[in-house]
Design a protein around this nucleic acid. Structure first.
Lengths: 216, 216
DNA sequence: ACAAAAGTGTTGCATATACACCCATGG
DNA sequence: CCATGGGTGTATATGCAACACTTTTGT
């Protein structure tokens, strides 16, 4: 590769995260509102450009913190978007990630140098997004649905101790369909990824449910 | 993103293909031998750097042709490698792909501007590879094994008309384990992705086997 | 005792596995 | 008629889907 060939110049790498949560049984995605051009005043997924001395994972962590004050979030890569026209100022490829987090435990900033607002949006109330983030978000939802049963991608969605009815509602909300309670419980328990803590939740008006935790 | 920030400069995008075949029941990968620095005289996977006016898929097609004369090969992305030190001259991220092809039908060049040799290698006789291609190749093999049963990733491995014993041997060779002939056949046929052509192979010394083709 | 939600077990069906014999061909 | 490999079916086990009643708690 001829390092001075202009065809290799002026291209960058973007890390883009579709960060999801389930709040009150509602499936939501985290968006930020841009302060600057291009796409000033528009909502986007969290993310930003990768420096030449960091991995893309590290770039995403840094950008999450810079753009929204987010820390300690796990994520998983699922696709790459490389249409040369997908970003206006300069050719940018996007490396797309999915993350799932408990919205009650995560701290974020409504405003930073680069963002004027940030919030959780109901999946079916997502505004028009900048860049090709609409498409990326749709693919992220598909990816999450695919992985929800055979991976622990939801492990950060709840506090360390959570109940099965909570988890059950989260699955139904993400998959957007009903799941039989008994079969859900049976299937999950025999996967051997969660364990009974022996404790119970402390909520009144009904039978208290057992608290479980992820083994990992 | 400040387009003039030096931290965004001097980084490129590499497309890297692990191209596989099964020949005489042996699982093989296609490698090329570099003519130039860095890693002069070493073997690598096929691939090359992406121009700023093409998608990464297009870059891979172009590079396959330039470096090995390869044309019309299908492939699927499976991972991204972004350690800043993975390439010596300049920071290059690698977008990694897997492809599977019939080695008898594919034409390739032993020598081009950039390559001094090219060949199929038995998986357990792969030489030391340049860059981090050893790791990429291992991940590619894992990915192929995962996809072999629920996708048509092998559809280009054989001529349009192929026999089930052929396909059976290919699966055994790639997965490196024995598979019951009857169950293999039953399972594959009920997936409904191949159809009986009504024709038979013309080889002697045994009962001729039926020819099938992929539906897609 | 009632409302609200948690917890549990059984049966049928579909899918996957294990396994053995007969068939067509060329020599 | 024999050697080679191709083709088929059945019985069992395992995993998944459907489904209804009992338990605990607070009021």
């Amino acid at each position: 590769m001829d390092i001075n060939n202009p065809l290799y110049k002026n291209q960058g790498i973007h890390a883009v995260l579709s960060l999801f949560t389930v709040e009150d049984g509602k499936f939501k995605v985290f968006l930020i509102k841009r302060k600057n051009q291009p796409y000033k005043d528009m909502w986007t997924l969290v993310g930003g450009a990768c420096y030449n001395n960091e991995t893309i994972d590290d770039a995403l962590k840094r950008e999450m913190f810079e753009k929204a004050g987010l820390k300690n979030i796990n994520f998983k890569m699922f696709n790459v978007y490389s249409n040369p026209q997908r970003s206006p100022l300069c050719r940018m490829i996007a490396i797309a990630y999915v993350g799932v987090i408990d919205s009650n435990r995560v701290k974020y900033l409504k405003e930073t140098n680069k963002t004027q607002d940030a919030d959780w949006f109901l999946i079916d109330r997502v505004p028009l997004l900048a860049y090709d983030h609409q498409e990326i978000l749709q693919d992220a939802i598909e990816f999450l649905k695919e992985k929800i049963f055979d991976t622990t991608i939801l492990k950060d969605l709840f506090p360390p101790n959570f109940t099965l009815p909570q988890l059950h509602k989260a699955y139904e909300s993400i998959l957007n369909k009903q799941i039989d309670r008994r079969n859900f419980r049976k299937g999950l328990l025999q996967k051997n990824i969660i364990v009974d803590t022996g404790k119970f939740e402390e909520i009144s008006g009904k039978k208290p449910s057992k608290l479980y935790r992820f083994k990992i």
